[in-house]
């Protein structure tokens, strides 16, 4: 929309409405005098700067803490207003476990990433088929199932509480975490794959493959699924990244070594220095930034399931 092009206003009241005038270029003549002020309305003058100001503020509030944290992980000290003493890799060495410090984040992060990978793979197995069924077929209670599959109805805290009581032996194990992460993050996978399927002519694709002699399972596995690979990839990245730093469910479920990444951060908020913590958090920032870069590359709008058409 040509939002910055000021509409031309002509304060003419004597001319009647020209029936042939078009509402596209501002050549419309109006009989209502009140609509033709001599100068632009207040909102026309301040509206855009105001919105831009709000947007700038929001972007600053959202990004400055992240940038400052990342930058100060390379500083020697953070007393005073700005962090000082650049550039040191001491805190990164501590966090990456090269300094033999207790702040080594790598074991916890590796554990979290391994669990997240398990949850991601399980999500492909459960998410892709149901996304296909929900997009391709009409059936009884389809809408209910759709809601169940794409709206996360149970919060992680409550699920974690229930999980430990239900499975006292396996609930706290890696297997329990994988199952929990998979269920909690499955909506992201179902959604991204669904939007991939929605952009394809599934019926025609399926019929072509079937009429060429492929069995139905073969059609699904070698024709349908490869066509949705972008959606599946996007879903994998999102579920994996989110599961890697999941806290709510993990905190309720987990009991000790190695602490998953987010729980490790929580336990070390009091005994680590600010710079060490900044470095630990920055490790995850780097992970998210790479995830966003890949997602934008394959056509997603940043870290969301919404795709640019």
């Amino acid at each position: 929309m040509s939002d910055d092009a000021e509409p031309q206003r002509r304060s003419r009241s004597d001319a009647g409405v020209d029936p042939n005038s078009q509402a596209d270029g501002g050549s419309v003549e109006t009989t209502i005098e009140a609509w033709a002020p001599s100068r632009p309305a207040l909102s026309t003058r301040v509206g855009r700067p105001l919105v831009l100001g709000i947007v700038t503020l929001v972007v600053l509030v959202l990004s400055v803490p992240v940038v400052v944290t990342f930058v100060s992980s390379f500083a020697e000290t953070a007393t005073g207003i700005l962090p000082r003493g650049f550039v040191t890799f001491e805190h990164w060495r501590d966090v990456l476990g090269l300094g033999g410090d207790q702040m080594a984040v790598i074991p916890g992060l590796a554990f979290s990433l391994a669990i997240a990978t398990g949850g991601m793979m399980l999500n492909v197995v459960i998410g892709v088929p149901i996304a296909y069924a929900l997009t391709r077929y009409e059936f009884y209670a389809r809408d209910w199932l759709n809601t169940l599959a794409i709206v996360p109805l149970v919060p992680g805290v409550v699920l974690g509480l229930a999980f430990v009581q239900t499975y006292p032996n396996h609930g706290r194990s890696a297997l329990g975490l994988i199952a929990g992460y998979c269920l909690l993050k499955s909506p992201y996978m179902v959604l991204t794959v669904q939007s991939s399927f929605q952009s394809m002519d599934l019926v025609r694709l399926e019929e072509s493959a079937r009429s060429l002699g492929a069995s139905w399972p073969r059609t699904f596995l070698t024709v349908i699924v490869p066509h949705a690979k972008r959606g599946i990839l996007a879903g994998c990245i999102i579920t994996w990244t989110l599961a890697a730093a999941e806290f709510n469910f993990t905190f309720m479920v987990v009991s000790g070594s190695p602490d998953p990444f987010a729980v490790f951060l929580y336990r070390n908020t009091s005994n680590a220095t600010y710079m060490q913590q900044a470095a630990a958090v920055s490790v995850y920032f780097l992970l998210v930034v790479s995830a966003i870069a890949v997602l934008q590359l394959i056509g997603n709008r940043g870290f969301t399931t919404i795709r640019d058409q």
Binding site: V58, V59, L62, S63, V66, T241, L242, A245, E246, F247, N248, A262, L265, Y266, V281, Y284, V288, V289, A291, I292, R301, G302, F303, T304
Partner: peptide, 11 residues
């Protein structure tokens, strides 16, 4: 704007 979606509450 989309970055914080990936950040858990603890961060």
């Amino acid at each position: 704007v989309s970055f914080p979606i990936a950040l858990p509450g603890i961060i």
